[in-house]
């Protein structure tokens, strides 16, 4: 048993920690892609693409005139006006952690609190590339510390399940969005890729989700668009794939249903999404186009988040 408000705080705490890590991954990719030759041509602005893949174009345009590197870094990493900037994510996560302190172990609390304290060492404006790299590493390590301390120290009960649900719903959203933002690149209809720039873009995309090496282990061939889509959508052994996220979501929701003795809308909805991802092959899934599938998935995932809120967090 858990206070509903505490369950809500745990769920969002995990979502914001995950979101901070995702923003760091996006910045890292943009930074890498922008440094390849032809990186700053008019029709290919990697910094703009970074904003698009977070789905926050409107908020960005309201604050900045153009997607310059420093504007994008400021917006995604430090801006207090962007509720999903890394800084805002850590702050919201810590506020949630404070209000739900009793449901966390000391290790989890300290991982979040020290992240927030260390964050003050990093100033937004005028960061060199190297400093940006150091900062992004710090963010990813903070996320690992949080994840690891939760995994290693928390009781396996409802508090843990809500925390994990938050992580996986956020992660599924991120994977879907980052694929959608570059969907034309690896449209499964395309057999091969043209040119070294595309190759570099695809490999950066895989690096962004720490999957480049995994790709080679799974397929043992060079990068091909439909295999990348297969890896990121259908492969359960790939921890950031949609299928893997939903395998976890369904499991933690079932654990809740088992402990509370009652199934509800969110269990049914998660199971339905999971079986779609498990049963069909890729071409069946993307019959109405990759874009259509991904947009629909993002909506469905959002609705599941709302259903969990309604069922438990209200």
């Amino acid at each position: 048993m858990l206070l509903s408000r505490h369950a809500d705080s745990l769920f969002w705490l995990a979502r914001y920690m995950e979101r901070a890590e995702n923003a760091a991954r996006i910045l890292e990719t943009a930074s890498r892609l922008a440094s390849v030759p032809n990186g700053d041509s008019v029709d290919r602005n990697e910094w703009r693409a970074a904003i698009v893949s977070t789905g926050s174009q409107e908020a960005f345009d309201a604050l900045f005139d153009e997607a310059s590197p420093s504007a994008v870094i400021e917006f995604l990493a430090f801006s207090p006006q962007n509720s999903s900037s890394i800084r805002s994510c850590f702050e919201t996560a810590r506020n949630n952690a404070r209000s739900v302190r009793t449901a966390l172990t000391i290790d989890v609390w300290e991982s979040i609190n020290s992240t927030w304290l260390e964050l003050k060492r990093y100033q937004g404006s005028g960061m060199s590339r190297q400093e940006l790299g150091t900062f992004l590493n710090f963010v990813k390590e903070a996320s690992l510390r949080f994840d690891g301390s939760a995994y290693r120290t928390m009781l396996r009960n409802d508090a843990y399940y809500f925390l994990r649900l938050g992580s996986y719903i956020e992660r599924a959203d991120f994977t879907a969005r980052i694929l959608l933002a570059r969907s034309q690149l690896f449209d499964p209809e395309r057999e091969t890729i043209s040119g070294s720039l595309e190759y570099y873009q695809l490999s950066s995309l895989l690096r962004c989700v720490s999957s480049l090496t995994s790709y080679h282990w799974v397929y043992r061939e060079s990068l091909r668009p439909h295999l990348i889509a297969d890896l990121m959508i259908m492969r359960e052994e790939m921890p950031r794939s949609l299928a893997s996220c939903y395998e976890n979501i369904a499991r933690f929701l079932d654990n809740l249903a088992r402990d509370y003795g009652r199934h509800g809308k969110s269990q049914r909805s998660a199971r339905k999404t999971l079986s779609r991802l498990q049963e069909a092959d890729l071409s069946a899934l993307t019959r109405s186009g990759l874009d259509g599938f991904l947009s629909e998935f993002i909506d469905e995932n959002g609705r599941l988040g709302a259903a969990i809120g309604e069922q438990y967090l209200g």
């Binding site: 048993m1 858990l2 206070l3 509903s4 408000r5 505490h6 302190r101 009793t102 509370y260």
Partner: peptide, 26 residues
């Protein structure tokens, strides 16, 4: 609350029904 192993509640977590206090839980 943590050391005692009891819930840390705010006013909005509690409600009264028939003169009995309840907390809202999952």
């Amino acid at each position: 609350a943590d050391r005692l192993g009891i819930e840390l509640v705010e006013g909005r977590d509690l409600f009264i029904k028939d003169n009995v206090v309840f907390m809202r839980t999952t």
